[in-house]
């Protein structure tokens, strides 16, 4: 993964900003068990059943014919990854000169958790009614949102889960919110068409879904949207938001978006971000 863009103000874990100087031990979010209570957070290893055992599981194939040599090659590959005591639990002859392995090994490496920073959407998680309430306090008009799967991507499952009235996993989509006017443009929309629609509609937010990620085509396509928006003078007004199973807020920022949402995102996550951010922008003006 390439470098993550970080703005100090945006750094947050579970809604709290991280202080500039960090203690060796911090309060972990959620309830900590007696075992990891008080562990050294500057040296944290992978965990199997004993603190410090560094246990990891790997699953991979190699273009090598099945046999003892192939198993040794798999172990050697793990050693080159820095793993210790690699054990091939399972090896299977895939044919055509390929072998599949399941390997368990011990990783001696530790990470300094106190220095970990992850760019995350900083908006608080609100319910549908709270989002609508916040909107009604600050706006007298509906917020206009357009969404699409852009480029060649034909998979509308994600954008539909966020936008369609029916929503997903019990959470109604943005169409069901009284604060939004939604235009779902569907699949395989070009960046040009998307931006033209944003201009026509005077959109407040643009939602782009990308499911197909082969050879990183989603990154190229998303970056192209922002380039085009800048060239057309459309970058400042709407919020640019992308989503998909292989996207994150960090990648979104890197690509020039305002926010990004990964797998497991539900409608209120996006709706809450949009309303809270637009309220902030309104107050800054």
């Amino acid at each position: 993964m390439s470098s993550v863009h970080q703005g100090p103000a945006q750094d947050a874990i579970a809604g709290q900003s991280i202080p500039e100087t960090v203690e060796n031990t911090v309060n972990l979010p959620g309830s900590a068990s007696p075992v990891n209570q008080g562990i050294d957070l500057t040296r944290v290893q992978a965990y199997g059943d004993t603190l410090g055992d560094g246990q990891v599981m790997l699953s991979f194939s190699m273009p090598l014919p099945f046999g003892e040599e192939a198993k040794e090659a798999a172990r050697e590959l793990c050693r080159k990854m820095g793993l210790q005591n690699p054990q091939v639990y399972h090896a299977h002859d895939l044919g055509e000169g390929f072998t599949y392995f399941t390997v368990y090994a011990s990783s001696p490496y530790a990470v300094d958790f106190s220095k970990i920073r992850v760019a995350q959407v900083s908006a608080a998680r609100l319910s549908k009614s709270a989002i609508e309430g916040l909107w009604s306090q600050h706006f007298s008009r509906k917020l206009r949102i357009i969404g699409a799967c852009t480029g060649d991507d034909a998979h509308t499952v994600g954008i539909d889960a966020i936008l369609n009235v029916k929503g997903y996993n019990g959470e109604k989509g943005l169409e069901a919110y009284k604060c939004f006017e939604i235009k779902n443009m569907g699949a395989q929309v070009t960046n040009e068409v998307m931006l033209a629609a944003a201009r026509d509609l005077d959109a407040d937010a643009i939602l782009v879904s990308q499911i197909v990620t082969q050879k990183d085509c989603h990154r190229t396509n998303l970056a192209a949207l922002i380039d085009l928006a800048e060239a057309e003078g459309l970058r400042a007004k709407p919020l640019y938001i992308c989503g998909g199973p292989r996207l994150s807020h960090a990648i979104a920022l890197e690509l020039g978006f305002d926010a990004g949402f990964g797998g497991g995102t539900l409608a209120p996550d996006v709706a809450g971000y949009v309303v809270q951010t637009l309220v902030q922008r309104q107050q800054q003006r």
Partner: peptide, 12 residues
């Protein structure tokens, strides 16, 4: 599924 196009061992 939904993560990547199948790897050789996913299919196996």
């Amino acid at each position: 599924e939904a993560m990547h196009t199948p790897h050789i061992h996913d299919r196996y």
